[in-house]
Write a protein that binds this DNA or RNA. Sequence first.
RNA 1: GGCCCGUUGGUCAAUCGGUUAAGACGCCUCCCUUUCACGGAGGAAUGAGGGGUUCGAUUCCCCUACGGGCUACCA
Length: 511
Amino acid sequence: MNNKEVRVRFAPSPTGGLHLGGVRTALYNYLFAKKHGGSFVLRIEDTDQGRYVPGAEQYIIDCLEWCGISPDEGPHKPGPYGPYRQSERKPNYRKFAEQLIESGNAYYAFDTPAELDSMREQFKSESNPSPQYNSIVRDHMKNSLTLSSEEVKKLLDGGTPHVIRIKIPTSSDVHLNDMIRGEVIFNTDQVDDKVLLKADGMPTYHLAVVVDDYEMKITHAFRGEEWLPSAPVHVLLWEYLGWKENMPLWAHLPLILKPDGKGKLSKRDGDRLGFPVFAMDWEDPKTNEITKGFKEMGFLPEAFINMLALLGWNDGSGEEVLSLDELTDRFSIERIHKGGAKFDFEKAKWFNGEWIKRTNNDTLLPLIKQIFQNNGIDAEVKLLQQIIPMVKDRCHLLNDFIQQSSFFFIAPAEIDTASVKPKWTENKTAFFTKWIEVLQSLPDWDAVIIENEFKKMAEAEQIKPGELQLPLRIMLVGGKFGPPVFEIASLIGKSSTVSRIQNGLQAIEQA
RNA sequence: GGCCCGUUGGUCAAUCGGUUAAGACGCCUCCCUUUCACGGAGGAAUGAGGGGUUCGAUUCCCCUACGGGCUACCA
């Protein structure tokens, strides 16, 4: 770190929804940058024109903003090291690839995809199911190592499609000092001659990540563990380009795994198991298929990032509910785990419940109002202000407010008569019929008064109040849930209470 | 197949050679509540296996097993 300003980057590909793992990588970048007073850069790695998805970039920016971890520099927020889209940096890469050819660390390769296929077919064997373009194979291929310089020049001048590959040295060890994993050693005999510059002139990830990290003065590079196997290529590139001194410190993050089976979490798992995998709703522009996001599922951003931060890291204190500021304060790379963590949606919901409880009612209000609106209910603000503190403790998701309080605004569509019908008796019908009259004559409409009257009358009728309270609840809210029943009655008002009892009685009789 | 990474209850995990092996989620019981929750009190449940090193290993080393990642002109 030696006095250099900390600069980190989150470098996603704009290929679709932003995955949990991606958000966590962005989050760790953000936490680390903020903790050290550094800069957090967003770089769009759109070098694969075939996988580019329009709208994905803006979506990523929106997700980060929702999470409260917006980058300091990026395509949306120009800084001194732009442009921040690799496609716009295209002219930049070729010269470095050619510089590598110049220094003997790379070469032109003219093999067609078909020739590569047949090579793989030819070298494929029981003991080597996936042959690589390596030091042995390259001698049998069409490249500037096997062709004469005249032939190469002719091909180049003739505009023959070609790529530039790194020339991996034989039998040497590449050392990588990972901040999380310590020293990892790779033998170059296991590494293949990766393509650096594609036939379309675009760099591959391998070249682009090194060039851009260098030019953007990145000091610490976080990425998923799936990148570890290609790390030696990157280390070699830093060396060959003469930038070794400036190579960022690497941190390969553990993966987020499927809750059940094995393997890394994918969008499919979310669909299959019924929980979101993306930060926010993602609509595929091709198919118009919408994949649910945590936001729309009713998560608070504070809870979402809190849960993610703790998936693979903790501060050792045992405290789990932490704000972004607290996370920033406590974050440390040394405490990031090495092993992958299975995602647990139940725990995620618990985090959200905790955050709903500790979020101001005023902050909650517009969110809840919006959710009601989405459900076709125009919730009156004054009423909401009374309802939110009453029900927030029973909600794990913001959407739970619908189940827990929609009956304040509209009469229940369905009534759970099955819970009361078996124990229903004639005298209960009589009770409620009479009770309606009492209610109508009540001068003041107040929860305590209603409750007292209710109990008084139950006693007079010689029925246990408990036997009557559940039916009353069912009639007012539709089921066995919600806050104290007399408070509900008080809030929905006399006429609604009376009409719901009337309808309820009818429904129970008919059931 | 090869290479690399990993392995404490069902899940997230603390422990940095000596502990009755924390805590949280989930689950179960009880209390509160004649709704559902919240809250409170309890409970069941963990060091993959085998070798070393050491007075002493969950902790250090090795092997095995298991899990994962990578093995594209995708990132």
